[in-house]
Amino acid sequence: MRPAMLFVDVAGRYHSDIRVSHGPTTVDAKSIMQMTMLAATCGTTLKILAQGDDARQATDALRELVEVQMFHETPAKRPLGETKT
């Protein structure tokens, strides 16, 4: 759910109405409930549609989060108890 949380946090920064589609389902990008229920697992293609004055910035930021920053995942995210070296 961490990726969903990051996604929702980014979407929340914009005024535009942002919708995300996965197959036939379309949900509000600012709702974590709707985003998690979309069940977009890794490798899923998402369509993002934004409407509003900052729509372009919003889609760019979301694209950046997903495609470039990969949800800030550091390589090999580890379970609890692991000490980072």
Binding site: F71, E73, P75, A76, K77
Partner: peptide, 18 residues
Amino acid sequence: FLYLYGGTEPTEEDHYQA
């Protein structure tokens, strides 16, 4: 563990690093 924690499917780099 690579698949069950971390939230997304592990990337090649995740595997490599681990």
